[in-house]
Design a protein around this nucleic acid. Structure first.
Lengths: 200, 200
DNA sequence: GAGCGCATGTAAAGGGTTACATGATTCT
DNA sequence: AGAATCATGTAACCCTTTACATGCGCTC
């Protein structure tokens, strides 16, 4: 679980309210770490209870800003230093790829083209952001430079996936005529290996 | 939620027990879609109840193999065709990158080197698998070709991340001397923007 | 017959999403 | 005055993980 540390990390930049944090999670970390406001408010309560953050100020519309404590800052730093990184990356795109053999070739080609377009466009958008940061439009502080590094990872992953989708479409791995491919729209065949002997 | 469809997809290849599916989820889909056996058994019960799968056979040690039904096969295909792909990729590596500015430069360099090594090694392993498949060591059926395509995505993502980690380490974005970097082990400073007025 | 690996589950606790609810302030 | 937006939360449901529990079959 890293929402806890994500919140601490954002609060290390300065005080913020649950609403602020929800917005920043959505904008900055939306694709790598989605978080909805109910979870965020709940987690903030827990963090406050644990003394890792504390109420900084009360604002206009019951706004309540939190501030990270020394303990909290130590905890993020401990988390970052400790090093045990979870390397799983949950990606539906990749899960689906395992089941491409169940798709009609035409459908698959269309799907891969949509995927390619999506990742290429995302990479393009991120690259524009990166260039803006490189021009110093967002300042040159350490946070901005860290974000630039994160951005670079996003760019490279999206580019990799775009080029993968293109490669897959060109390779046409499930093309009709290839051995074992589902005959073009002909039979919605059972597809299973050992044919069932009898029902029940 | 795609565990449901993941199970249906695997069962489309042929009958399997919960135990088999847990093992295959771990081995084939472990990094992209982790799933533990309790969830798998629970989901199999639900799928059976919904008529998407049914008991195929009973084996030695209370083993219970399931088989996909026509309805189940239609459901996976519907899922694959429908197209609404969730493009979020939860990656701790990327989340951490946003907080690199909180790390000591030396620590960060060490971290990036560990990450680089990990992704490079993973890519290497996957590439070896891919070559084996290309030599036809696992057959040439549609499932194998689909897996080859998925494998290619894994290779490209891991290569992208390895090259990113190397780039980041060489760029040395949080190097001492750069404006605003945490002075080498000097002050465990508050780091926050607006300094708190008073305690409590 | 001891131990290992196969095989299936339950229980508890926590994480995450969606829907619902509400109040306060600003803008038009 | 009405609408939009800021802001915080509760409730219900589902997903996920970890720990616990148990029994069968094979191998040594």
């Amino acid at each position: 679980m890293s929402l806890r540390h994500g919140l601490l990390g954002l609060l290390a930049e300065g005080p913020a309210s649950g609403y602020d944090l929800a917005r920043r999670f959505q904008e900055a970390l939306g694709t790598v770490w989605p978080a909805q406001h109910p979870r965020i408010y709940a987690e903030l309560s827990r963090l406050a209870e644990a003394g890792l953050i504390e109420v900084d100020s009360h604002g206009p519309r019951r706004r309540k800003a939190y501030r990270i404590t020394g303990e909290g800052l130590a905890e993020v730093r401990r988390w970052l230093a400790e090093g045990e990184v979870d390397h799983t990356f949950r990606m539906e795109t990749l899960l689906r790829a395992y089941f491409f053999w169940l798709m009609e070739p035409a459908e698959l080609r269309a799907h891969l083209e949509r995927e390619r377009a999506f990742y290429a466009e995302t990479a393009r958008t991120l690259r524009a952001y990166a260039r803006a940061k490189d021009r110093g439009e967002w300042g040159t502080g350490p946070q901005v430079r860290a974000m630039r590094v994160a951005l670079e990872a996003g760019i490279r992953i999206n580019e990799a996936l775009a080029s993968w989708a293109e490669w897959a479409r060109e390779t046409d791995p499930m093309a009709p005529g290839s051995p074992g491919s589902p005959g073009a729209a002909a039979s919605p065949a059972p597809a299973a290996a050992p044919p069932p002997e009898a029902e029940g």
